[in-house]
Amino acid sequence: MIGLDFDGTLAPIVPDPADARVAPEAAAALVRLGGLVGAVAIVTGRPAATAIEYGRVPGGPGLADVPGLVVLGQYGLERWEGGQVTSPPPPPGVERVRAEAPALVASLGFTLTDGAEPGVTLEDKGRAVAVHTRRAPDPEGTLRALREPLAKLAAETGLAVEPGRLVLELRPPGMDKGHALGAFLAERAARSVLFAGDDLGDLAAFEAVRLSGLPGVTVCSASTEVTELARRADVVVDGPAGVAALLTALADALPPRAAS
């Protein structure tokens, strides 16, 4: 079974999250791998349908063309499979965060932007709200200043804060990529697993690989922004381009699956 994060792993990190798109080479490799391995799953904090939409490749195969693909979105709260999305209703705390986060950011002296100008960007994920500082004049300083106030708001609304690459995401607690991946491995009775990620949220998936007891490989899509993941990975590659090259090499090396 092959599991992958989306942003920073299959798609390059970009200033505006809405501009993220899967690397065509990665999509093409996954289309091949879908017929060679037991299962392919994308485990992401994005809404599942968004990952599929941003996984389209003009003139070529996209993520929706991967045989048997499952997308576990919102850290496993949503599931895309066979063109259908299933999910529980969003918790009420998300609605409060959606309403109060803009004023909170502004009260701290930061400019909100829709991505066209420098500033802090709010991404509404439906069941979570992500606060991005990548476009701020001082991204790291802005992230530090927002961390405590956003953690307080999350605590008041019964949500958890998930840190990432210049982003703080307020989302329902109790679900992470480790839980999502572990449950999927059990569901599919996987016999081996490879998981690739790029960010701190992927550490839980790395741990799920270890705890599964299966033959497993963890892959870090390396960046200068996050170094801890590389220290915990079995294999380190150079960003999404490196992930695409690894997936292509796997597709070249694996034999066809025997008919059942």
Rank of each mutant, 00 (worst) to 15 (best):
V71G: 07
G68C: 06
G119D: 12
M1W: 01
A99D: 12
P102W: 01
P163D: 14
A41R: 15
V120M: 10
R96W: 11
A186M: 11
E78Q: 13
V120I: 12
D198I: 10
V193S: 01
G35D: 01
E95V: 12
E148M: 05
E169C: 07
G34D: 00
E140L: 14
P163R: 08
A253P: 08
V120N: 10
E123T: 14
A26H: 03
G83I: 00
E53C: 04
T218A: 05
E117N: 14
G119V: 11
A51P: 08
E148V: 11
A106F: 06
V70T: 14
A28T: 09
L247R: 00
T121S: 14
A18V: 10
S260D: 10
G8N: 06
G68W: 06
R56K: 12
D5Q: 06
R21I: 00
A29H: 03
V217I: 10
R144W: 10
L247F: 01
E95C: 05
L166M: 15
P58N: 05
D199R: 02
F206I: 02
R210L: 09
R21S: 00
A145Y: 04
L112P: 06
P173T: 05
R21Q: 01
P88S: 15
L104I: 09
Q84I: 12
A189V: 08
P12E: 03
F6D: 03
F195I: 02
E228H: 12
T111L: 11
L150C: 04
G213V: 03
D138V: 12
A51S: 13
G178I: 08
G197F: 05
D124Y: 12
L4Y: 08
A251C: 06
R231N: 08
G8T: 09
D234P: 14
P173M: 02
